[in-house]
């Protein structure tokens, strides 16, 4: 606690995945860093590395990041084999160097999944997630068409539970940490969010069938209920939402005209350029 750590510094050995572009083969390269303050965030440590590489005439390491406050879902990184590093409920940008010890070797890899191809170094393409949302992760309501907000009461419990799922930041840690590279937690978060609200009810069958179909055609793996996704999820989305997704899917597949007719069971991505 408190400021006992101020002024402490670490010397580190980094093993970083470098890959020029998707077509090239990648490899690990080793770098040494000295005098890293324990107050730094993990990404600030990488900033220092990049400054050092620039001075040495080597190209800086490319990595995705944006808000640096844990909410945008842009940052990623497999740090010593753990998605977003060792802390639960934390994104890489909120991970601090006080979590590491002097002399430690840190292995940094990109998210690895067939559906998340590497673009460069530690940057991967997560547009599969956008295509999954396009396949039904919304409520079809025209702008200006909405009824008065309080006309449909929603119990506090339902709202809180929906929000528990809606907090997903779409970072992909669930896919990265799953031994099968399954996207079930991501898909479940959206299905569960909208399935628990009256606004989401009219399209629930189409939504779950469409989103699961898209997930499958993006070639994510299958869920085997190991719960690694839940442990890696920085937003704390629980695997109970996966169970709700399964339930929704069963209802849609066996209980709705859409499912029985076999519509929406496979979909192909639209959009993008």
């Amino acid at each position: 606690m408190s400021h006992s750590t101020t002024g402490k510094t670490l010397n580190l050995k980094l093993r970083v995945w470098r890959q020029k572009d998707n077509a090239s083969r990648g490899e690990f390269r080793d770098y040494a860093l000295v005098g890293i303050s324990t107050e730094m965030s993990f990404l600030e440590m990488l900033d220092i590395l990049n400054e050092q590489l620039l001075q040495q005439g080597e190209e800086p390491v490319n990595f995705d990041h944006d808000c640096r406050e844990g909410i945008c879902g842009t940052c990623s990184l497999m740090i010593n084999g753990q998605a977003h590093g060792p802390d639960n409920g934390t994104t890489t940008c909120q991970l601090h160097m006080r979590r590491f010890h002097d002399g430690q070797m840190i292995t940094i890899e990109p998210w690895r999944a067939k559906a998340f191809p590497v673009i460069r170094d530690l940057v991967v393409d997560r547009s599969a997630f956008d295509r999954i949302i396009q396949a039904g992760g919304y409520v079809s309501v025209r702008t200006g068409q909405a009824p008065e907000a309080n006309s449909v009461p929603i119990s506090k419990n339902d709202q809180e539970s929906a929000l528990d799922a809606a907090v997903c930041i779409g970072c992909g840690a669930c896919v990265a940490s799953c031994k099968n590279a399954s996207a079930m937690l991501f898909v479940a978060a959206k299905v569960s969010h909208l399935a628990q609200l009256p606004q989401g009810a009219p399209e629930r069958a189409a939504r779950v069938l469409g989103m699961v179909g898209q997930m499958d055609s993006e070639e994510f793996g299958n869920c085997t209920n190991t719960s690694e996704c839940e442990a890696a999820c920085p937003a704390g989305v629980s695997v109970t939402h996966i169970a709700r997704l399964n339930r929704e899917y069963a209802k849609a597949l066996y209980g709705s005209p859409l499912g029985l007719k076999g519509e929406l069971l496979t979909s192909s991505g639209t959009g993008g350029d």
Binding site: Y138, V139, V141, T143, G144, Q145, A146, P147, E148, A149, V152, I154, Q159, E160, A162, L163, A166, H193, L194, L197, Q199, G200
Partner: peptide, 9 residues
């Protein structure tokens, strides 16, 4: 109204 209709919790 719009946001509630979209399912903003």
């Amino acid at each position: 109204d719009q946001c509630v209709a979209q399912g903003v919790p």
